[in-house]
């Protein structure tokens, strides 16, 4: 390339810069498919979902979780969102020289607990240490694989006009908890939602099968960003009703203090689903009753696909509309 361009923080934020970066990387041997968080691959007759994710979080420990739980659930959730039953994980640890072993033990304890909770086994791994000047703290990477569930056909290409957008619970808890911890705000009520969504995905696939068109876990960039990814993949126009979107008061307060928008805050234990209109109520009921998501709710619909002007629109409280764009940079606390 030789363009002199350099990696920026925004390239890792999951927003538009990330999309632009990886678009420029594909060459022979890359088959990115639909650019979902997990790929579907075949081995013989069997179809699997396969994914990898790296975890860098400051602080390493936050209310409701830590980097160990995050590393397990992040990958488990990417597999689950692809319609797979998560089965095996790998775990790579890159730590800095001088990092306290007690902390590493705590993190590994969390990995183990989270794996049991999610019903997966960590079967292979790797450890590297870098000098303190090159890395502070610890970075984890997990990869995971799982067999696709019978009846699951999760693909952006199957989304149709009229389909309903569902979320499995309140949004933004994870990022709000991390921010609260980082800026030393009291934490009553703000806890990371960090958890497996495999049970929720299984419940909804069991209930409505192929009427579930697409789902994703809204991590970095939040609901607004995953819906923008969907919209740009298939030229969709998606409409979200602001008053229907569940956001806990504590998350809203945190966002207000720091000047952030909850619709762009990351979750680590939620799903965004698109379900056909006739099966939407059934999907919500299955999520609430069998999927462990009592607050699952429909928040919007897909108005159009194949549009030349893909967009995500928010119907505001006062009956106005605004466009929800991609997150362009990592969110930072503001004075204005």
């Amino acid at each position: 390339m030789g363009s002199g361009e350099k990696l920026r923080m925004g390239h890792g934020s999951g927003g538009r810069l990330t999309a632009e970066l990886i678009d420029g990387f594909f060459g022979a041997g890359f088959e990115p498919g639909e650019l979902d968080d997990a790929a579907t691959v075949s081995l013989g007759q069997e179809r699997f979902a396969f994914t990898t994710d790296s975890f860098v979080v400051d602080p390493l420990f936050f209310p409701g979780g830590d980097i160990g739980r995050l590393a397990v659930f992040g990958t488990v959730n990417d597999l689950a969102a692809q319609g797979a039953e998560p089965a095996y994980l790998s775990l790579a640890v890159v730590g800095s020289e001088g990092f306290e072993l007690d902390l590493l033990r705590r993190i590994m304890g969390s990995v183990s607990e989270a794996a049991v909770e999610a019903g997966v086994r960590v079967v292979t791994g790797d450890t590297k240490v870098m000098e303190h000047s090159a890395l502070r703290g610890v970075v984890l990477n997990t990869a995971g694989v799982g067999r696709l569930r019978d009846g699951a056909q999760i693909s952006a290409g199957r989304v149709q006009a009229g389909d309903i957008v569902i979320v499995t619970g309140p949004l933004g808890d994870h990022e709000a908890a991390v921010l609260c911890h980082r800026y030393d705000f009291g934490l009553d009520g703000v806890k990371s939602d960090c958890a497996s969504v495999a049970g929720a995905a299984a419940a909804v696939i069991g209930a409505v099968g192929q009427e579930l068109r697409w789902m994703r876990d809204p991590t970095r960039g939040g609901l607004a960003t995953v819906l923008n990814e969907l919209a740009s993949q298939i030229g969709a126009s998606v409409e979200i009703v602001q008053s229907a979107v569940p956001v806990s008061p504590a998350v809203r307060d945190t966002a207000d203090i720091l000047g952030l928008d909850p619709l762009y805050l990351a979750c680590e234990g939620r799903l965004v689903l698109v379900v056909s209109a006739q099966s939407a109520d059934e999907a919500v009921a299955a999520l609430q009753e069998r999927g462990g998501c009592p607050q699952a709710i429909a928040v919007g619909r897909v108005n159009e696909t194949g549009s030349a002007r893909p967009r995500v629109e928010l119907l505001t409280e006062f009956g106005g509309r605004r466009i929800l764009r991609y997150l362009t940079a990592d969110q930072q606390p503001r004075i204005c």
Binding site: L187, A250, I257
Partner: peptide, 11 residues
């Protein structure tokens, strides 16, 4: 001191 902003406490 500390203040409660809704459900969030801050210095």
């Amino acid at each position: 001191g500390r203040a409660a902003v809704g459900e969030v406490e801050m210095a």
